[in-house]
């Protein structure tokens, strides 16, 4: 009985730890993104609230909480209210299977640094992350606004065309690691990360992850200059904030996934594993921000072309080649 309680407490502790760290990172990623984007555009970015603008996330939250929570007339009220939650919650749920450190020894107990080490972790990630698009689609649909609807439709079709390549680009990883469990995949990269072993899969996965996070150059569902605000045009206050935070949680989560699948997870010399993991996630996030500063938004047909005519065949061929090489190596 007490054994069970301790296990439960451990899981709860890990949950709180992840929740806190991920939300903290999401809040400060917003600030980091605004500052880095600003510097890249020869501006300063936010620097008024607190020293170096470090209290900016707090100010943003206070502002969002005190704004009116507006529901447009003739909107589908229930869907409108729950849609932002879907985005944020699905993004957080993915983190359940992400291992962020090696197994620890605490008081003679083996504590794996992952909430649940599912043996089908990859499938879980693919399933839950495609649920995330429901937030966008339902939010767009329920707003009863043409811009929101267009944003939602775009989000859906983008998901359909990129989810395939996303899944297929993970197949070589699974073949190389011989497991669907994310912990095993990290363990398989002890000596050399999969990014170097299979750069094509890494490239395809990275592009698909960019599309999955609805960020530039794939931010078609938002597309400020075409669709006002896309799917979140009609949202205000903390509901808009949830969409916003969801996007940045998603950034953290997808950064961790890139780290787990291709950058060798917590493996690295000299530094403690947890620091390595954090460092790699932040590096991927910095890459996201850099891409946002540098690239224009793709046109809708270019996006479809890239997804169906280049990434999909490329990842299929990559699976074949990887399989042949693995067979040849025995």
């Amino acid at each position: 009985m007490s054994e069970m309680l301790v296990t439960l407490a451990l899981i709860l502790g890990k949950l709180l730890f992840i929740f806190g760290v991920v939300l903290f990172m999401a809040a400060y990623l917003v600030l980091a993104e605004r500052k880095i984007l600003g510097r890249m555009q020869l501006r300063y970015g936010p620097n008024r609230v607190g020293p170096f603008g470090l209290m900016q996330p707090l100010a943003d939250v206070i502002k969002l909480l005190t704004k009116e929570d507006f529901v447009p007339a003739r909107a589908d009220k229930w869907l409108f209210l729950i849609a932002p939650g879907i985005t944020a919650v699905t993004a957080l749920l993915v983190f359940a299977v992400i291992p962020f450190g090696p197994t620890l020894e605490i008081f003679g107990r083996q504590v794996p640094l992952v909430v649940v080490d599912l043996n089908i972790g990859v499938l879980y990630f693919l399933g839950v992350s495609s649920m995330a698009v429901y937030g966008v689609v339902l939010g767009g649909w329920a707003s009863n606004s043409k811009y929101s609807l267009l944003g939602g439709v775009r989000g859906l079709s983008q998901m359909v065309s990129y989810e395939l390549s996303l899944g297929l680009s993970l197949v070589p990883v699974i073949m190389m690691a011989r497991s669907f469990s994310l912990t095993d995949i990290v363990m398989a990269q002890q000596s050399i990360p999969f990014m170097l072993l299979n750069p094509v899969a890494f490239g395809v996965f990275f592009i698909c992850v960019l599309a999955e996070s609805n960020r530039i150059p794939f931010d078609l569902p938002e597309a400020e200059n075409e669709l006002v605000g896309g799917f979140h045009t009609e949202y205000s206050g903390m509901r808009f904030g949830l969409f916003f935070v969801g996007e940045y949680i998603n950034m953290v989560v997808l950064g961790s996934l890139v780290t787990v699948f291709f950058l060798g997870g917590w493996h690295g010399p000299w530094l403690p594993p947890l620091l390595w993991f954090l460092f790699k996630v932040l590096a991927v996030c910095a890459m996201f921000i850099w891409i946002r500063a540098s690239m224009p938004r793709l046109r809708y047909d270019q996006l479809m072309n890239l997804g169906w005519k280049i990434l999909l065949p490329l990842s299929l061929v990559n699976i074949l080649v990887t399989g042949a090489v693995l067979l040849g190596l025995g």
């Binding site: 880095i36 600003g38 510097r39 890249m40 555009q41 020869l42 501006r43 300063y44 850099w290 891409i291 500063a293 540098s294 690239m295």
Partner: peptide
């Protein structure tokens, strides 16, 4: 055209911003 912008943004990051505070 795909890779040049990355160099431009990186270079700009280490320049002094033109903002007048």
């Amino acid at each position: 055209g795909t890779f040049q912008p990355f160099w431009v943004t990186l270079r700009n990051m280490f320049r002094k911003p033109v903002t007048i505070q």
